[in-house]
């Protein structure tokens, strides 16, 4: 029922060398500094990193929704099902957004329009992309609501009559109403409490399987990644520092930053052990260092790390790490075996 993707391969999203800066009056915020990744049909990738690592900017750039000004896409290509997102005209972009690629925003409390009933808001998405009558679109909206576990008779109600978890479900219903090939979930559970988080994640997983949607899960929660994702990309200061399958990154952690993230997690089996947070703060994106951006916080950092950009090492066909320390073939991080 959907037009076939313009490409024949299974790759639905291909991001290459993306650089996005925010050019303010006095400074330039280097939010995303050359990231590349691909996503295959029906698979899911987790973008993990601290606040300010450039995850959301990456997501907005994929939709070509980076606010301009001040945002500027300096270089790179983004290919969504064969469409070059960065070169399209607004009219063409409007046809792709919501239809081929959809996004769930972080805060369900503010992402719904308070004066339009939830049914209408879902129907709006259908009306934009499919040639259906208003009542058919509304029927689809009710179907979508029931699919996300909200009784259809509540379609006429307004967002303030729903709880946070239910609103997030409504947002998911809106995002999936036109059966997109790619769904970007930008910290979809951050604003929800833990029990509701589990429900919402399960639901995204089920719907993803049911519709064969590819998923980009943006989160700072490694638990969410473990539950939801096939692949993981760890971001730091606008770069992907480690990328691989879930197995690669979780069980064969290579990058010191990834190690630091795991060490910051409480371990339920060792209650007396202390957390080891990563010292310092995330690099200031307006003043990125010459060398590795993580070097000032890295316990393995050498002068070479501080002086020149990190080198990329292919650990296995699926596993990449961007760390100068691996120039030395014997290098090994300390703490990775603590986490299985």
């Amino acid at each position: 029922m959907l037009d076939e993707c313009m490409t024949n391969s299974d790759v639905v999203l291909d991001v290459q060398d993306l650089v996005v800066h925010y050019e303010l009056k006095n400074e330039v915020v280097k939010a995303v500094n050359g990231i590349s990744f691909t996503l295959q049909k029906g698979r899911s990738i987790g973008l993990v990193g601290e606040t300010g690592a450039g995850k959301t900017t990456t997501a907005l750039a994929i939709m070509n929704l980076v606010p301009k000004p001040p945002g500027v896409v300096k270089s790179g290509t983004i290919d969504v099902c064969g469409y070059k997102m960065l070169e399209l005209k607004p009219k063409q972009l409007e046809k792709i957004r919501g239809k081929e690629i959809s996004m769930i925003f972080q805060d369900p409390m503010t992402s719904l329009n308070p004066v339009i009933s939830v049914g209408e808001q879902i129907a709006e998405s259908v009306k934009l992309h499919e040639n259906v009558s208003a009542s058919e679109a509304y029927d689809r909206a009710i179907e979508m609501l029931e699919l996300v576990g909200i009784p259809g008779e509540r379609a006429g109600e307004y967002p303030h009559q729903f709880s946070g978890g239910m609103r997030q479900r409504v947002l998911i219903a809106i995002a999936l109403a036109c059966n997109p090939r790619i769904l970007i979930a930008d910290e979809p559970t951050t604003a929800l409490d833990v029990t509701i988080q589990a429900q919402v994640l399960n639901m995204i997983n089920d719907l993803k399987k049911q519709f064969g949607t590819a998923l980009i899960m943006i989160t700072h929660d490694l638990g969410v990644v473990a539950k939801m994702c096939d692949d993981v990309a760890v971001m730091y200061a606008g770069r992907i520092v480690e990328k691989g399958t879930l197995e690669d990154v979780f069980n064969d952690t290579k990058h010191p930053y990834t190690e630091g993230l795991f060490n910051s997690l409480p371990d339920i089996t060792k209650r007396e052990s202390e957390l080891k947070p990563i010292p310092g703060l995330i690099a200031d994106p307006t003043k990125l260092p010459e060398g590795c951006a993580f070097a000032p916080r890295c316990q393995y950092a050498t002068d070479a790390c501080r002086e020149r950009p990190p080198t990329i090492h292919q650990i296995s066909p699926t596993h990449l790490v961007e760390c100068t320390a691996y120039d030395n073939p014997g290098f090994q991080i300390e703490g990775w075996q603590n986490h299985g």
């Binding site: 929704l65 409007e94 959809s102 996004m103 925003f105 992402s111 709006e124 934009l128």
Partner: peptide, 15 residues
């Protein structure tokens, strides 16, 4: 400036 405006853009609505 509300997030729902951005959400509307994300489903492909025109300005």
């Amino acid at each position: 400036g509300s997030e729902f405006v951005e959400a509307a853009r994300a489903i492909g609505m025109s300005e």
